[in-house]
Structures are given as structure tokens and as C-alpha cells.
């Protein structure tokens, strides 16, 4: 972990007990028959922090709530309950004007650089747009900041790219433009939602290295990914999500090398290793991830858990540190911890 994380006492981003649920349309018949209103429980009580100079990865399979969590952090969706504090400010209660002021300090990079850039905008317009929207600087100073952001994103010399259109760029270059656009306002927090999954393998490392360098410059980075290998290599801390909850969190190396939760163990066992000699017996879980409308009682993982005992049907476990954990920051939500 970098020095910046140790210096600042309070984390930049604090998420506490976050709950997000979406109502399910009952339809006319449902309403007439007065069927009970159902909800998709996308995020059910998620807490974590991200400090300046730290990269935290939210990992999990599709539908686990990782993207919804990120959207709630940016107030792109409204949480049902729970707190999101950014630099001490409660984001959940902000009005539109304060929210707008705060948003320039928190930016997001999306998965698909082919979709996220306007094809009719030149690179300079794309990167400058946030500055224009937030009425930052005059035309000349804007150009300087655009150049600076492009260079930070690894498009150097920036002058070579200013007048280009997205179709003239490769996938990796487009994602760099998207990163530059998110950096133009000088944010403190960068949320990266699957930033490399649409890109070719040979250019992924370059994008991840840029995020890594931004972290070293003091940015807080929240990365959403389904790729545990990427999280293992680049994140400082990993939060493993399952069905709307964090089931394990801790320093990346510890979560990968000494997983505590049965779900994390299973997930790690099915990640293909690049060395053909390294064979890990895949521990394939029975069944599929349950429907987030009908979350199982007790531990939400118990119907698929290979280690489940009777108590798991009734006790909803909290995150806690295993006995003799190498670090206090490593916690898992399982009643069998340490047994």
C-alpha cells in the first residue's frame, strides 16, 4: 500500500451499510390481484472504504451488485439506505447543485470505449467537454489542461491526438481518451467499471498501468472487475461480492493466497492459470447464483456452499477477522471461520 494511504487518517470514500433495491414491475394483473410488490435486492448492506492513493477492487460474478455499488457511490442510482461519505460529505443527501460540485471530484470510466465516446467529437472536444460543462477556465487554459490529461493517460505527444476522431483510434487509444476525459477536472476518485474487458490482451496492461500510476499520484481508484487475475495483480485491496454482499475483503495478496470464505475459495479455484503445468482442481459450485428477488435466508451462500452446516440456514454472518489473521483488514462473512 502506498504512503498516501497511511498519511491521511480518514479514507476519502466511506461506504457504510449501503442498500440498493429496484422494484419489480407487477404488471396490471399483478396490481389488480394485489400481489405483493417485489424487489431486486441488488446491494444489501455493503460497507467498504477507499483511501487516497489506494486501489480497491470489487470483484464478483455478474449480478453480484458490484456495478450497482459503484453507481450508488457516484449517486447515479439512489440508495434505499446506508451512507456514502466522500471526503466527509454525505453524498446520499445532496441536492442537485452540491452534487454537481462534488461530481467533478469523482469520475467514472466505462467498459466500452467504443460506446462511451461521441463519434462526432474530436479528442480535444471530448476531453474538454467536462471543463466546458463545469465552466472551468478560458479556452487557452482549457487546451493546456486537455494536453496535460492526455499525457497523463499515456497519449503522448498529446498534439498528435487532439484533432483525431474516435474512429481513427485503436481500442486502447480510445480507452486512454476516456481516461483523459475523466482526469481533466482533476478528480480525487476514479471509478473504473471493467476498464479493460473489451480490449485486446496486448493493450490491457497499458491501461491498467495508467490506473496504477494515477494511484501513485494520490488518486483513489475503485475498480469493478470480474477478472480476479487483474485484481490480484493491480489492486491494493479486494472485496469479493456475492449476491449483493461483500463476503470477503482484505489486502489483495492475502485474499488471493489465503482465502477464508468458501465462495472465494471456489472462485479462485476456477480462474484459469496461464502456466499449463499449474493445475488446480476446479471446485465447481452446485446450482446457479440465486435470484436476487428471493434471497435465501441465513447465509445467502448456504444453498451452494460445499461447507455449509445446519446453522448456516438461519444465521446471516457478519464480516469478521479470522483468528490469527495476518492482517486486521482481512475479514470474511462465514460462521465457520477459524473452525
Amino acid at each position: 500500500m502506498s504512503a498516501a494511504a497511511a498519511d491521511s487518517p480518514a479514507p476519502l470514500l466511506e461506504v457504510d451499510g449501503l442498500v440498493v433495491r429496484y422494484p419489480v414491475q407487477r404488471g396490471l394483473t399483478g396490481a389488480l390481484l394485489r400481489r405483493p410488490r417485489q424487489h431486486v435486492h441488488a446491494v444489501s448492506g455493503v460497507s467498504f472504504t477507499v483511501s487516497r492513493g489506494e486501489m480497491v477492487a470489487l470483484v464478483g460474478e455478474s449480478g453480484c451488485g458490484k456495478t450497482t455499488t459503484a453507481q450508488a457511490v457516484l449517486r447515479l442510482v439512489r440508495p434505499e439506505s446506508g451512507d456514502v461519505r466522500f471526503d466527509g460529505i454525505d453524498v446520499t443527501g445532496l441536492g442537485p447543485r452540491e452534487l454537481r460540485r462534488l461530481r467533478r471530484r469523482m469520475q467514472i470510466i466505462y467498459q466500452d470505449p467504443y460506446e462511451s465516446l461521441d463519434p462526432r467529437f474530436r479528442v480535444e472536444q471530448t476531453v474538454a467537454e467536462a471543463l466546458v460543462v463545469h465552466r472551468e477556465g478560458a479556452r487557452e487554459s482549457r487546451r493546456l489542461r486537455v494536453v496535460e490529461a492526455l499525457e497523463l493517460a499515456g497519449l503522448s505527444p498529446a498534439e498528435l491526438y487532439l484533432d483525431r476522431y474516435p474512429h481513427e483510434l485503436s481500442g486502447g487509444q480510445r480507452q486512454r481518451v476516456a481516461i483523459a476525459a475523466s482526469l481533466a477536472l482533476g478528480p480525487d476518485l476514479l471509478v473504473a467499471d471493467e476498464p479493460v474487458s473489451m480490449l485486446d490482451v496486448s493493450v490491457r496492461a497499458g491501461i491498467l498501468t495508467i490506473l496504477d500510476e494515477l494511484r501513485d499520484r494520490g488518486l483513489a481508484v475503485l475498480m469493478i472487475t470480474h477478472d480476479l487475475s487483474t485484481a490480484a495483480r493491480f489492486a491494493d485491496r479486494i472485496c469479493v461480492m456475492y449476491l449483493g454482499r461483500i463476503v470477503e475483503e482484505g489486502p489483495a495478496a492475502q485474499v488471493i493466497e489465503a482465502p477464508q470464505h468458501p465462495y472465494t475459495k471456489a472462485l479462485l479455484s476456477v480462474v484459469p492459470r496461464r502456466d499449463p503445468r499449474r493445475r488446480v482442481k476446479p471446485q465447481i459450485l452446485r446450482g446457479e447464483t440465486p435470484n436476487p428477488i428471493a434471497v435465501p435466508p441465513g447465509c445467502r451462500f448456504h444453498p451452494r456452499c460445499p461447507a455449509a452446516v445446519e446453522d448456516c440456514r438461519t444465521i446471516d454472518p457478519e464480516l469478521r477477522a479470522p483468528a490469527g489473521a495476518a492482517s486486521a483488514g482481512h475479514r470474511a462473512a462465514c460462521i465457520l471461520l477459524g473452525r
Binding site: S170, G172, V201, S202, V203, R204, A205, G206, I207, L208, T209, D227, L228, S229, T230, A232, R233, F234, I256, L268, V271, R273, R274, D275, R278
Partner: peptide, 22 residues
């Protein structure tokens, strides 16, 4: 060789390097 080096691995702390150019 470079493609393998550009691929992150769960159990490796090797530096992951992209391949320049297109």
C-alpha cells in the same frame, strides 16, 4: 512470449507489460 507477459496471472507477481503498437 510478449502475449503471455501481457496476461496477468492469479499467482504471479510478475510485472504485466503491454505490447506497444498495433
Amino acid at each position: 512470449r510478449l502475449l503471455f507477459a501481457a496476461t496477468p496471472d492469479l499467482e504471479s507477481r510478475d510485472v504485466v507489460v503491454s505490447i506497444p503498437g498495433n
